[in-house]
């Protein structure tokens, strides 16, 4: 396996006194696409928030390219080349489509992604560039959220619930665009409810259950029984 770009070990995350993640160990290889599945409330979003620095962790729990990033703020993590497409898009409502994309470029990293290449990937966004981001359909908003993350020219991109709440036809579009996004040597972590989709785009899959890793497997060999056991905790 290639060297990990991201590695967590013994990761524990808390909301106040409530512990949401227990001893999570996972790694993402350079150039790898990893899928994370798990029921609602399993801790997937918490894991994303911990990695990106929105939740604080103890030192030594998260390493990015060999550096301990556990104590860094989210803006510092972003500058290292780690971007996220958050659950529920979370666009900036007072910004236009174009401004939302521009905010993504704030970290000032060099790479293939700029307004032009994002518009080429999602032409509809160029037509809508001066509209308020809230006036777009759900699918178009997800395109903005993806474009915004790409504008940072990240080396590792995290997608939290990439297709949640979108129409099937839109989901198909987004998955069709995915290879073009990740193909450029980027690594990716995809949190997805649709297990078939998750397995089809990833090389390995982790399942979270009540804050713990309940399964780690290659995506093409994992069995349905293993998944349902890991998902629901049925022995």
């Amino acid at each position: 396996m290639p060297d990990p770009i991201l590695q967590t070990c013994g990761l524990n995350s808390f909301y106040g006194d409530f512990q949401a993640l227990y001893d999570v160990a996972l790694d993402v290889g350079e150039g790898e696409v990893l899928a994370i599945i798990g029921a609602n409330g399993a801790g997937k979003t918490t894991l994303m928030r911990s990695i990106t620095g929105l939740l604080m962790n103890e030192p030594g729990q998260i390493h990015y390219r060999g550096h301990d990033i556990s104590l860094l703020r989210a803006d510092q993590v972003a500058e290292l080349g780690l971007a996220m497409v958050p659950e529920g898009r979370q666009l900036f409502p007072s910004l236009t489509v174009r401004e939302n994309l521009m905010i993504g470029a704030q970290v000032n990293r060099k790479g293939p992604w700029d307004l032009k290449s994002v518009y080429k990937l999602f032409p509809i966004l160029e037509e809508r560039k001066d509209q308020a981001s809230t006036s777009l359909s759900g699918g178009q908003q997800q395109m903005v959220a993806i474009g915004r993350a790409l504008m940072a020219n990240p080396d590792l991109i995290l997608f939290d619930e990439i297709s949640l709440g979108l129409a099937p036809i839109i989901i198909k579009d987004i998955y069709q665009a995915l290879p073009g996004i990740i193909g450029e040597g980027m690594s990716a972590v995809i949190v997805e409810q649709d297990i078939t989709k998750a397995l089809s785009v990833s090389s390995r899959v982790y399942c979270l259950q009540e804050g713990r890793v309940s399964l780690e497997s290659a995506s093409d060999t994992v069995s349905r029984e293993d998944i349902s056991r890991a998902y629901f905790g049925i022995e």
Partner: peptide, 23 residues
């Protein structure tokens, strides 16, 4: 301006703005 954009973004959503590299 980029500064004004940052003001509006932070005002909208502090966490996500931070995620975009705005401290």
């Amino acid at each position: 301006t980029a500064l004004g954009r940052a003001f509006r973004a932070v005002s909208d959503n502090q966490d996500i703005a931070q995620l975009m590299g705005l401290n």
